[in-house]
Structures are given as structure tokens and as C-alpha cells.
């Protein structure tokens, strides 16, 4: 897949080349402002690249579509719909051929999978941040897309909730008959290491992929034994050192900060 995006005032991404195999879990990691979210926007079809393109199964991405499911940090759900309505609404639009009972059944099933059976009629503002993200994830799985796009989905959660959500995501992801392709944006090195098959490290101004690292650990992965694995420790310190270099670069060049957002 190729992406490129020249904004009117700045180049958010340039010369980004990333090939993702079916069923791979890829993390994008990098300092803020390096264009991670822009990649998600382009693949999801919200933004069109000014140069280059995104392709899924040899087909160019034009606009949004039901083959991609998206979870954002904390604003995927519509506040005027209950948890149940949010999920139903998404299924209605991604699979219009389903009859009403089927839609509702699916919505209930997925609410149950994320442990929210008791809150179908809760409006998002009454739910905690973690519960809201569980609804968002339930919604993404319920629409059954080919590709999952997740833009720092656990970024706003506290660390305990984050651990729970990572395990939940892995469980749901590996349960299906065939694994879905996941493009996962994060700035948490441990999270990336635990979840991914490959990690793409990005660097800013202009956003580009600096290095792609394969993560060798066998699945299912165990959080506890993983953190004691010397290979894990080695990879983690390596990733941190790359990111740290980037940050030093940022500090040395203070002009880059204000360019982050147009």
C-alpha cells in the first residue's frame, strides 16, 4: 500500500510504503504529529491522499466503506444513541441486507461478548471511558469488516482498564475462524509489543515510516512471561531508543511542534 498526503501548508506524510498481509496485526508507533492518524484517515477513506493511494486487495480505496471498521480514541459512539442503538445503527448501515431481528440479535450477542449485557439502554455519557470503548469494539466486531482500523483506542484509559481491553481485543480477534487484518495506532511500546505481528516505527516532519520490526513471539501471548523474555526486553529497549532519538530530534528542532496540526 502506498500513501501520500500533501496538505496545503505542510506535508503530513511522504513516501510511506507499507504492505500488510491478510490477518496481520500491525502497529503504528511514533511521536505525536508523525501522521499515524492520517494513515488511518486515508485507509478508512475519510481523507483522500493528495499523492499516491491506499489499496485493499488490489483495489484502490475510494471513500469510506463497510469493509473497514474503525475505532477512535473516545469519540466513535454517537452520544444520542444508547449502547444497543449504536451497535444496531452500525450493523444496519454496513449490512443493510440483514433483517431487523438478526441485527438486534447480533447487537445483543456482541454486547454480551464485551460484558455489557446489563447496559444496553445506557447512553454513552452514563458509561465509563472503558465501557464506552468496549461498546466501540463490540460495534466494530459486530459489523464484521475485513480490516480493523484502531486509532489509539485505549489511549484515554487508565492502565488497569487498558490491560483488560488489550486482553479483550486479543481474545475477540483470535477467536474468529480467520483473523482480521488490524492496523493499530498507539504510542505505548508495551501495547504494541504485546499485540502486534509487526511494528512500524514512524518519524515526523514529514511523517514517514522509519523502520518495520517483526515481532517473533508465538501466540497466544502471555503478558507475564513475555515481560520476562530477554528478546522482549531487547526489542523494547531498541524501540524506545529509536523513539527517544526522535524525541531528541524534536527538542533540538522546536519549529516542528507547531506544524503538527494545520
Amino acid at each position: 500500500m502506498q500513501y501520500g498526503n500533501n496538505g496545503s501548508r505542510y506535508t503530513a506524510l511522504s513516501n510511506v510504503n507499507l504492505t500488510i498481509n491478510n490477518g496481520d496485526f500491525i502497529s503504528l508507533i511514533g511521536p505525536s504529529g508523525c501522521g499515524k492518524s492520517t494513515i488511518i484517515d486515508i485507509v478508512s477513506g475519510i481523507r483522500e491522499p493528495t499523492n499516491g493511494m491506499a489499496m485493499i486487495d488490489q483495489k484502490q480505496v475510494t471513500g469510506t466503506g463497510p469493509d473497514r471498521g474503525t475505532v477512535f480514541q473516545d469519540y466513535s459512539l454517537f452520544p444520542w444513541m444508547t449502547a444497543f442503538e449504536n451497535i444496531c445503527f452500525a450493523i444496519e448501515h454496513t449490512s443493510p441486507e440483514y433483517p431487523r431481528e438478526e441485527i438486534e440479535k447480533r447487537a445483543r450477542d456482541y454486547l454480551e461478548l464485551v460484558g455489557l449485557t446489563r447496559f444496553p439502554n445506557a447512553y454513552p455519557f452514563t458509561l465509563s471511558g472503558g465501557m464506552r470503548q468496549r461498546v466501540s469494539i463490540a460495534r466494530m466486531f459486530a459489523t464484521d469488516p475485513q480490516v480493523f482500523l484502531m486509532d489509539e483506542p485505549f489511549g484515554a484509559l487508565d492502565s488497569l482498564n487498558r490491560i483488560y481491553m488489550q486482553d479483550l481485543l486479543l481474545k475477540l480477534w483470535s477467536e474468529g475462524t480467520e483473523r482480521k487484518t488490524v492496523l493499530f495506532v498507539t504510542h505505548d511500546v508495551d501495547e504494541a509489543l504485546l499485540l502486534s505481528d509487526k511494528i512500524a516505527v514512524m518519524s515526523p516532519s514529514p511523517g514517514r515510516i522509519k523502520e518495520i520490526i517483526s515481532i517473533p513471539f508465538a501466540r497466544p501471548r502471555c503478558r507475564k512471561s513475555l515481560s520476562a523474555d530477554p528478546e522482549y526486553i531487547h526489542l523494547k529497549s531498541y524501540l524506545l531508543s529509536i523513539l527517544y532519538c526522535e524525541m531528541l530530534g524534536e527538542i533540538g528542532n522546536p519549529d516542528t511542534e507547531w506544524k503538527e496540526r494545520p
Binding site: D41, S44, G45, Y75, H93, T143
Partner: peptide, 18 residues
């Protein structure tokens, strides 16, 4: 309306009417 909510809606592929 929060632009991110509109983007979130657009990822569902809604028609203009919807």
C-alpha cells in the same frame, strides 16, 4: 457538531439522507 463524530459516521458509509 464535533468533526470527529461526523468522521466516525462517515466510516459507516451513510447516505446523505441518513
Amino acid at each position: 457538531i464535533d468533526h470527529r463524530l461526523i468522521n466516525s459516521a462517515r466510516t459507516l458509509g451513510l447516505s446523505d439522507h441518513q
